[in-house]
Write a protein that binds this DNA or RNA. Structure first.
Length: 476
DNA sequence: GAAGGAATAT
DNA sequence: AATATTCCTT
């Protein structure tokens, strides 16, 4: 087979057709692969439109590097279609090492006597190698051992893929998918077989969004603690995956998850400190009030809530949208996504740069099953952001209520001064509620130009009117 | 020996 | 960074 993809310039069409990188992607439906080869002619799925076809020095297309649709059709429609393919797995015919070996073998044979068809091909390979350079991908293309085909994406959600790097020596429990693409090109594998008979068959799984989704689904079904490779594999029900594939992915999954949890815990801790330092009781009350749909009030004094991670909701993690319409559409609005326990009642409009800094984190969370993966995954471009960002007035017009700083004792008695100090150090819940909830904590309102914020005296006067006790009840 | 998991290699 | 492989433990 021929590896065509590496010489093609990446294009949007690639993604639309499920072409990712140098691999063939066989999209899957909910049952992973049962829709394979059911609707359209396979030729429709094969992308022969190379932007950069194989040209020789004269600009002619090298005939033997063209993909033979008939051959491809025979190959992929062969009754010998492997479990790997049947599972909707991505198939890559040969790994770079094997390709290199195959090429080396072809060259070796070509140097000696070129009498057979294979040897003539090897001869051509040498010539093409000179044209293509030493890049592994190009070698793959030149070696005549890999064909990259693409298929229209049937599944709008993504595709499962397994890259099967094959040679002829597959053995062992980890090679369930070893028969991938085995049929159909045996004649062209002579050199590779000769040189890789002692090698191990490598199966490289490409964890596409769909595959990963099923993985996460299985993990969640089992519970993170009871999720072990064998059980996950069982639930996923994908033949072309091995226990080791799952174990490897699970290791990564746990690692990312742990990392995310640690970050969230850190953030939660910080938020908790912030709450308790500045507004223990009222902030919680206000949060609840705001959650019920009330107007947003600043939960703390003087400091806006930190911005949430904001990211564009990807259609599928790690891959661009597969549908042409979506691909052509403008990017979806940035969506703030908060940790559950950190979700503020209303957003604080942050600097743009900050939002962008959060995107990678968010993307990672989406893939690796952070606590909000489900919510994030459920977000679609059409959805309204959970916390729509209101128009952000110019900072110069913003009025921040003055900090609650109890004034120095106005009385001359020592006792009163002491009590005031106690109030400073240990404000009662009631006093804070009254002071912050009713007087000082107001929305971050734009202050009309020319209007001055209230003075501290007027604020304190208002406090007095509200009947704020000078001494905490507990201390009285 | 098989499985799980962490460490390490590619 | 993602995935495979190896090594160790159970």
């Amino acid at each position: 087979m021929l590896e065509v993809s590496s010489l093609r310039s990446p294009s949007k069409v690639d993604h639309q057709r499920g072409f990712v990188g140098d691999h063939v992607v066989f999209p899957t439906s909910g049952s992973v692969c049962d829709d394979f080869m059911v609707d359209d002619n396979l030729l429709d799925y094969i992308d022969f439109s190379c932007d950069v076809p194989f040209f020789d020095a004269d600009g002619d297309i090298l005939p033997d590097l063209e993909v033979d649709p008939t051959e491809l059709l025979a190959e992929f429609s062969s009754p010998e279609t492997s479990p790997t393919e049947a599972d909707g797995c991505r198939v890559e015919a040969k790994p770079p090492d094997d390709l290199r070996q195959a090429l080396a073998a072809a060259e070796e044979e070509a140097v000696t006597t070129s009498t057979t068809v294979e040897e003539k091909k090897a001869d051509e390979i040498i010539n093409r190698r000179m044209l293509l350079g030493n890049d592994d991908d190009k070698l793959a293309a030149a070696s005549g051992s890999g064909v990259t085909t693409t298929r229209k994406s049937v599944d709008a959600e993504g595709s499962s893929a397994v890259t099967t790097e094959e040679d002829s020596a597959g053995a062992g429990s980890d090679t369930k998918s070893s028969s991938a693409s085995a049929g159909g090109h045996c004649g062209k594998k002579k050199a590779a077989d000769k040189n890789s008979s002692n090698g191990k068959r490598k199966v490289k799984v490409d964890w596409t969004p769909e595959l990963h989704r099923r993985f996460v689904q299985a993990v969640e079904q089992l519970g993170i603690d009871k999720a072990v490779p064998s059980r996950i594999l069982e639930i996923m029900g994908i033949d072309c995956l091995t226990r080791h594939n799952i174990a490897s992915h699970l290791q990564k999954y746990r690692s990312h998850r742990k990392h995310l949890m640690a970050r969230e815990a850190e953030a939660a801790s910080w938020a908790q400190k912030r709450h308790h330092m500045y507004a223990p009781a009222p902030a919680r009350k206000l949060d609840a009030a705001a959650a019920a749909g009330g107007p947003w009030v600043v939960p703390t004094l003087g400091f806006p809530p930190p911005p949430p991670p904001l990211c564009r909701p990807l259609h599928v993690w790690g891959h661009p949208p597969t549908a042409g319409v979506e691909a052509a559409a403008p990017p979806p609005a940035m969506l703030p996504v908060w940790a559950r326990h950190l979700a503020p009642p209303r957003p604080w409009a942050p600097p743009v740069a900050y939002w962008h800094l959060q995107q990678q984190q968010y993307n990672a969370a989406r893939k690796w099953g952070g606590p909000h993966q489900a919510a994030a995954a459920a977000v679609t471009p059409a959805m309204v952001p959970r916390f729509p960002v209101p128009p952000h007035p110019h900072p110069a017009t913003m009025y921040r209520p003055p900090m609650v700083v109890p004034p120095p004792p106005t009385t001359t008695t020592t006792k009163l001064a002491d009590l005031q100090l106690q109030l400073d150090a240990h404000p009662s819940k009631e006093s804070i509620d009254a002071a912050i909830g009713d007087v000082l904590v107001k929305p971050w309102l734009p202050l009309p130009l020319g209007l001055k914020p209230p003075s501290m005296d007027s604020v304190m006067s208002e406090l007095h009117k509200q009947g704020i006790p000078k001494v905490p009840p507990s201390s009285a």
